[in-house]
Design a protein around this nucleic acid. Structure first.
Lengths: 361, 361
DNA sequence: CTGAAAGCGCTTACAG
DNA sequence: CTGAAAGCGCTTACAG
């Protein structure tokens, strides 16, 4: 696709007006006679003119910085999952720093929807140009979208997709698909003669949308792709406690002659290997989510077989870049992204860890 | 990392010189008194000044376009592998078009090293700012690097790493690692009681570096990670013929009681399923490379279990971006990239195909 | 309703 | 050896 190399100056000459007038038409500003406007628009169309975004931001970078707010759950510590999208956000902001962009961080308490609402109100008052957050509270997310629509502020949700009253932008992995992927991976290891358990290890927030969708995708894989009737497929919902132990529940399902396939629907798969080992259960295979340090170390020593990466850094990165593209080019195409379901094993994990060799996220 | 927002104008004021002089120092141009130069350099250091690349390219975009040449094997048709890096190159050029960048395409015949040399000579005569190619011919690659060094032109090699007489830039997958990944994937499906075969399907060029390295990584996985002695690991080198059939060779190895694990070290894994089926070999599992249409369709119908993606589009994309970063910021860090060993199955292949849902390559 | 001028941060002739 | 001016493509006051 060859860009026409015409500039605003050329348009002005062709339309026999000043560049100021061309600019008014291009940016839909008032104060142009209808006849003039029409003429300029025709020229723009005929020449296939495309704005030089870089040049336009050069002037604006100082006065009109694009202000983005990001509101995520408050992190317990530096290793927390929610630091990862923030890292991605930071590198996008860094990359675009010459173009005039800024980011402000806000946090809410996952167990208290009021803190989410309060922060939203605060953000909307401060005149940000865009907002990145997560749709964990349904009612509050709807309220947010309603207000953002009024104020004409784009909102991008990370991590989870959820049906809301207004159309929203989502940058997240398709969790149903991720469950399907987990199904095939585990099935490949265990085969048709096996016991399969979906393990939901739940904190005080209970079962989340992603957990439901992952389980549903996992079950769907076995319904769609496996003809055998022998497959035993169970679900354990277990609270995350200090003395975490789901062996009692597992024992009911165990068949010593069969392999055990465990699908942990969130990042806590690292809780399983020690429990299994101390109970002398050695015929189990595990698939989990997310590249936290504990999961990675069990992946490396062979106790966990596969991890699925949601690319949280990339989610943050893509959100900022998508917002920038939308606000500078009115191009919405990057505001909705299906993150690849990335399959990680011991031998390729180094490419996907923050300080690994890769240049991507 | 907070960028200091100082511009060349601020530096000039601080050093009590004109912006022209600051510019001369920044760009290492001659004609500055040593004492002045020192003073300016000190200010630059103290302030942590960082050039606004966007602004600098704005002026240069018209006069001083960065000219890149890419030399790849000539493609038989539109579906050829070598179109994929070109696609990535194109999107990078598109992305950077406002910054003044251009690309010219050159082709050589894989079976004739002289065509490679001739094209290199042609390119070097035309005063390009950088060159992207592949290191398939050792002698000619060394000759290229020698000349490029003299002319001070950066060269980026795609696809394959090879030891050369001068240090080169490589954007490619680690093929040994990819073989290790294939090892674990196939071992997970087949287990310790199985027959494993590495299949090298070779065209007139014979066995390539990537084939050797992939096989070696595959074998290394079994040496490192599998304690059992039962593993049977064979290699078949077979020419790519019209009546391609490696069943005779396979039959010698087959044990009807064991599963068969087949690792195809290049993109031609799609040749296997039909051969196996017509010989009623149904207990085989296949891992291959590359997301060509035929491989994908066998992946989707379950005849191929895993494909490893080398991300050829991304290789081209990253080469252009890396060159741009080097030529505008003297930052070489993006000229050498280890492409992730991406694991692809039926359920996530849609994210990795050119027109899939992903925004990345 | 329209145009001419100044400026974003840098680079490039040109003048001294 | 150094400075002042013009310009990259666009946007923004300001003047008419």
């Amino acid at each position: 696709m060859q860009r026409s190399n015409l500039g605003i100056k050329d348009l002005a000459k062709l339309a026999d007006v000043s560049i100021g007038t061309v600019d008014r038409v291009l940016n839909n500003r008032s104060g142009v006679a209808d006849s003039t406007k029409e003429r300029v628009l025709r020229i723009i169309k005929e020449t296939g003119y495309k704005k030089n975004v870089v040049a336009s931001r050069l002037k604006l970078a100082k006065n009109k910085v694009i202000k983005i707010a990001i509101l995520v759950p408050s992190a317990k510590n530096e290793l927390s999952y929610w630091n990862l999208p923030l890292q991605g956000v930071d590198s996008a902001v860094d990359e675009l720093s010459e173009m005039g962009i800024s980011i402000d961080y806000f946090y809410f308490d996952l167990l208290n929807h009021q803190t989410f609402s309060d922060q939203i109100d605060k953000i909307l008052k401060e005149e940000f140009d865009a907002l990145i957050t997560v749709p964990f509270f349904e009612f509050e997310s709807n309220r947010l979208l309603g207000k953002a629509k009024e104020l004409n502020i784009p909102v991008v949700f990370l991590d989870t997709e959820r049906d809301l009253l207004f159309p929203g932008n989502f940058i997240r992995q398709n969790s149903f698909n991720a469950g399907m992927v987990a199904g095939r991976l585990l099935h490949g290891l265990i085969g048709d003669q096996g016991t399969y358990v979906v393990v939901n290890i739940l904190n005080d927030r209970g079962k989340q949308i992603n957990n439901f969708q992952r389980e549903s995708g996992f079950r769907s894989y076995f319904e769609d792709c496996v003809e055998e009737e022998h497959i035993k497929l169970h679900t354990i919902n277990h609270p995350l406690e200090d003395q975490f132990d789901l062996v009692p529940e597992l024992k009911d399902l165990l068949d010593p002659n069969q392999q055990l396939g465990i699908f942990v629907t969130n990042a806590r798969s690292f809780l399983l290997p020690d429990i299994l080992a101390s109970n002398h259960i050695s015929n189990a295979r595990i698939v989990g989510f997310d590249l936290n340090d504990k999961n990675i170390s069990y992946l490396k020593n062979g106790s966990i077989d596969f991890l699925i990466n949601q690319k949280p850094q990339f989610q943050g990165y893509a959100a900022v870049k998508g917002i920038y593209k939308y606000l500078t080019e009115e191009d919405m195409s990057q505001l909705n992204i299906d993150i690849p379901v990335e399959i990680v094993i011991k031998e390729n994990v180094e490419y996907y860890t923050p300080f690994g060799r890769g240049v991507e996220f």
